[in-house]
């Protein structure tokens, strides 16, 4: 099998896997089962969780190169990032439509008055911007500004975890796990940065 076939198969496989939560959600809604007593909350949780999981997986791809020298996974980064943004968008739609019923006055007061909503909205908007600037044409047009823009994904991930920590009566415990995963994902990057900074003096 040549490299190109392998890459294509990898992409198709990852696309199929990343679509499973969406298909699962659609199936749950249409079959009217397995959504629990508060289906809207369930859908919000599922979409938010998967946005975060996929964001974490996306962020794990680069450290794999740093740690093991692997490169094959880097070609999946864009697709996984797009899926993360997609589930974040579904999450926002669930909230604005199903939960708040497009009550714009309430959406406004929530956005302004509740830091947890504000920070979540900024994170979702950030992912949307990154998704829109991910096609090759956008990469070319942005040139040198592309990379600094897309480095904001680390900030977005931090904001997403803060959003989880603040969300509910008991958000703390989930958020602790997410925060630890995030720290684990960010550590290799700090190691690389530290190395770059110290090498000229060596």
């Amino acid at each position: 099998m040549n490299t190109k076939t392998r890459d294509t198969l990898g992409k198709v496989g990852v696309f199929a896997l990343a679509s499973v939560p969406l298909l699962d959600g659609i199936w749950r809604v249409t079959s009217g089962t397995r959504l629990g007593g508060n289906p809207i909350e369930t859908l919000e949780h599922l979409s938010g969780q998967w946005a975060l999981y996929l964001l974490a997986i996306t962020l794990a791809l680069t450290p794999l190169r740093t740690l093991f020298g692997w490169r094959w996974q880097l070609k999946l980064r864009r697709m996984l990032g797009l899926f993360a943004a997609f589930y974040a968008l579904v999450h926002v739609v669930c909230y604005v439509w199903l939960d708040l019923g497009f009550a714009w006055d309430e959406i406004g007061t929530e956005l302004i008055g509740r830091p947890t909503i504000t920070i979540g909205a900024v994170a979702a908007l950030g992912l949307l911007v990154l998704a829109l600037t991910s096609p090759r044409a956008a990469v070319r047009r942005l040139g040198k500004r592309w990379q600094p823009l897309h480095r904001s994904v680390y900030l977005i991930a931090v904001m997403a975890v803060v959003h989880v920590a603040w969300k509910g009566k008991d958000g703390g415990e989930d958020a602790l796990v997410y925060a630890l995963v995030l720290i684990a994902l960010l550590l290799p990057r700090f190691a690389v940065l530290a190395k770059k900074r110290s090498s000229p003096q060596a």
Binding site: L35, N38, I40, G101, T109
Partner: peptide
């Protein structure tokens, strides 16, 4: 402090139930 108490959702298992 983190959410409004003005409205509530009656638990009914319905995906389109309004508050």
């Amino acid at each position: 402090p983190r959410w409004s108490q003005a409205r509530e959702r009656r638990i009914d298992g319905n995906v389109l139930s309004a508050k």
